[in-house]
Computed example of a mutant assay.
Amino acid sequence: MIRKIFLTTVLAVACVITASAQNADAILGKWLSKTGEGQILIYKKGSKFYGKLAWIKVPNDETGKPKTDEKNPKAELRSRPILGLEIIKDFVFDGDDVYEDGTIYDPKSGKTYSCKMTLKGDVLKIRGYIGISLIGRTENWSRVK
């Protein structure tokens, strides 16, 4: 009888852990930014989530060369291409379709912000902020199908 209860408990815990991991991975894939100027590929490294610019509407500058991270505050990084740039880093899934404790980099301004992401179906709410999340801006990204 005790063995049966133990096995049932272990199975229930395994199901909950599996369901949680599947929910966490729902964010994986390509997302179109609010402006439609870029697609961000969200992927996983270990247990954390990251995102890189997989496509940009205008990939080259006026001279025909690939756009670079010219606004980066670190001079040594200004020559790296924007396409393929990792702009979302270190997000942790905390349940309830929320991803926290990460940062988002804006190559247009060269600034990095604390960020929280909330998944609502095929819409990803991106909340970038400085300090506390009450002071920030939210954008809705849509899933690329």
Rank of each mutant, 00 (worst) to 15 (best):
V16K: 07
V16I: 06
V16S: 11
I17R: 02
I17M: 02
T18W: 14
T18C: 03
T18F: 10
A19C: 13
S20D: 03
Q22Y: 13
Q22A: 13
N23A: 11
N23L: 07
A24K: 09
D25C: 03
A26S: 09
I27L: 09
I27W: 06
L28V: 10
L28P: 02
L28A: 00
G29P: 11
K30C: 10
W31Q: 03
W31M: 03
W31D: 10
L32H: 00
L32G: 00
L32A: 06
S33L: 00
K34C: 03
K34D: 12
K34V: 03
K34W: 05
G36E: 08
E37F: 03
G38N: 12
G38Q: 06
G38S: 15
Y43A: 09
K44Y: 05
G46V: 11
S47M: 15
S47C: 04
K48F: 10
F49A: 06
Y50V: 11
G51A: 06
K52I: 01
K52V: 02
L53Y: 08
L53S: 01
I56C: 01
I56S: 01
K57T: 02
V58W: 04
P59N: 02
N60K: 03
N60W: 07
N60V: 01
D61N: 00
D61C: 10
E62W: 05
T63G: 10
T63V: 05
K65E: 08
K65R: 03
K65Q: 09
K65A: 14
P66M: 02
K67G: 08
K67Q: 07
D69Q: 09
D69V: 08
D69P: 05
K71Y: 04
K71Q: 15
N72L: 09
P73F: 09
K74M: 12
K74N: 12
K74C: 02
L77S: 05
S79A: 08
R80T: 07
R80F: 00
R80G: 00
P81R: 04
P81C: 02
G84S: 01
G84F: 14
L85Q: 06
L85W: 07
L85N: 09
L85Y: 07
E86M: 15
I87S: 14
I88V: 13
K89T: 15
D90I: 13
D90H: 07
D90V: 11
D90S: 08
F91Q: 03
F93K: 10
F93Y: 15
F93E: 00
D94I: 12
D96L: 01
D96N: 14
D96S: 09
D97G: 01
D97P: 00
V98E: 10
Y99G: 03
Y99T: 01
E100G: 10
T103D: 15
I104V: 12
I104G: 09
Y105L: 11
Y105H: 13
Y105D: 08
P107A: 11
P107N: 07
K108P: 07
S109W: 07
G110S: 09
T112M: 05
Y113L: 13
S114M: 08
S114I: 03
C115V: 14
K116G: 04
K116M: 11
K116C: 10
M117L: 15
T118W: 06
T118S: 14
